[in-house]
């Protein structure tokens, strides 16, 4: 160990951090860079040999055409944002009481229900979707935001319950006891004392749920038929992956356009998120 004691060699320590950081950032940043670079190229240059690091015929036309496409890109982006935000809200609201119950209320069958909830993520969605489609038809949920939000909740919820349970576990049970002595019931404890203490965690879980809906293809595709109801993944496939060719430039421009605002929100919320995530996961 002695030989690697970097504390005695601050220069070596800095160099090592630098190299690790540079390698990891290169790995993470490289495809992103390539996507942005390609989004500025006309379609004809997508297969240029050798590839152009910096577009020779740089153009923002790909971006312009996405932003003009009211029936397409803008609709998909709007649907994507709406459905994802709704899903985040529903998921958070529903997982609060469940997470609290797991963390603070002793009840019979806890372990079994925990396993049941996790198990809901272990079956391939594509097998379920057929049966879900029939159910939705009967319930008139096809082509509705409600239907999409419910379907997305099916995979964001188990995760959210697990995380929120972790947040509540960071609150000592003595707090509950004290409140009960004051005459509060469980619901009052949850709403007045529990929730305010885990707000950062709720934000974090909300963001996770948001991204889960944002990225979902199979439910979004199968449970909607109208073009006006499509979210981003199926909408993007519709627009950029034709029967005969890929529209690389447009595809990457569209991706950059929907990625930017989300990343900006992330950066803005970073502080809360970081403090929120940890509490949930450390205790698990």
């Amino acid at each position: 160990m002695r030989r690697f004691d970097l504390d005695r060699r601050p220069a070596a320590k800095r160099a090592l951090t630098g190299i690790v950081l540079a390698l990891c950032l290169a790995f993470v940043f490289f495809p992103t860079f390539w996507m942005v670079s390609s989004s500025l190229k006309p379609n004809r240059d997508a297969f240029a040999v050798p590839p152009e690091w910096v577009p020779r015929r740089a153009t923002v036309e790909n971006y312009r055409s996405q932003l003009r496409d009211r029936g397409g890109f803008l609709t998909y982006a709007k649907n994507g944002f709406l459905v994802s935000i709704e899903n985040a809200i529903v998921t958070v609201l529903v997982s609060i009481p469940a997470g609290y119950a797991f963390a603070h209320i002793p009840f019979r069958g806890k372990r079994a229900i925990t396993v049941l909830i996790i198990a809901s993520q272990m079956f391939p969605g594509v097998v379920i979707v057929i049966s879900l489609f029939s159910l939705y038809r009967v319930l008139h949920l096809l082509d509705t935001y409600t239907g999409l939000v419910l379907a997305f909740t099916s995979f964001s919820l188990p995760f959210a319950v697990w995380m929120i349970r972790g947040f509540f576990e960071t609150i000592p049970t003595e707090v509950d006891e004290a409140a009960r002595v004051d005459g509060c019931n469980r619901l009052q404890i949850l709403v007045r004392i529990g929730v305010p203490l885990v707000v950062p965690g709720l934000l974090a879980v909300g963001l996770f749920s948001f991204l889960n809906s944002w990225n979902n293809l199979i439910f979004a595709l199968s449970l909607t038929t109208e073009q006006g109801m499509r979210t981003i993944p199926p909408g993007f496939l519709l627009t950029y992956v034709g029967e005969f060719q890929y529209k690389w430039g447009d595809m990457f421009a569209g991706s950059v356009l929907v990625t930017l605002p989300t990343v900006a929100i992330f950066i803005a919320l970073q502080r809360f998120l970081v403090s929120g995530l940890v509490a949930g996961a450390v205790k698990g």
């Binding site: 609290y100 009840f107 019979r108 159910l135 419910l150 919820l157 319950v161 469980r186």
Partner: peptide
């Protein structure tokens, strides 16, 4: 406690029942 736990878990289980467990059972 048992009742509260049931009530608090009900929304989660109801949603999962509708969109996961019911379709799962049919397949």
């Amino acid at each position: 406690d048992q009742r509260y736990a049931a009530a608090f878990l009900a929304p989660t289980l109801a949603i999962l029942a509708l969109v996961v467990f019911y379709p799962l059972a049919t397949v």
